[in-house]
């Protein structure tokens, strides 16, 4: 392995619980976060619903990932981006989210994506 730090972005475009993708995606993010690379997450489209406050999966008997989202900051995953257009389309605001996010305009998000070495859709 060289000294260079790679920029790896995980893109979440699916809503929570209907499929396992966002859940297993977060598991991947936490492991990668331990490797001193520049890890970011982008929430786009229905992926924004993964960030809603007060998700309670008790009755589903699914573990859920509210706690995992909460520890991202402790794992130094601090670049968490949300697409402004997806947010407006869904009638959401940052107050609806359980973690702090950076809202980006589509052109800004496009620029962030272009800077990545690797983009992993989750």
């Amino acid at each position: 392995m060289g000294e260079e730090v790679k920029k790896i972005m995980h893109v979440v475009r699916r809503p929570p619980h209907g499929t396992i993708y966002p859940y297993e995606g977060l598991e991947m993010v936490l492991i990668m976060a331990a490797y001193d690379q520049e890890i970011s997450m982008a929430f786009i489209g229905d992926g924004l619903f993964c960030l809603l406050k007060d998700q309670d999966t008790t009755k589903l008997e699914i573990k859920g990932f509210m706690k995992t989202l909460g520890v991202l900051e402790d794992y130094d995953v601090e670049q968490i981006y949300v697409d402004s257009k997806s947010m407006a389309e869904r009638g959401l605001t940052p107050d609806d989210f359980c973690i702090a996010v950076e809202v980006l305009e589509p052109d800004e998000m496009g620029q962030k994506m272009a800077e990545q070495d690797c983009i992993i859709p989750q």
């Binding site: 790679k6 991947m28 490797y35 992993i120």
Partner: peptide, 20 residues
């Protein structure tokens, strides 16, 4: 193997291609 190995691969290769 573990996800750490995937991370090493992602760091090492020129292109990580994703299919799904």
């Amino acid at each position: 193997t573990g996800l750490g190995v995937l991370t090493d691969i992602a760091i090492r290769v020129d292109r990580l291609m994703i299919f799904g």
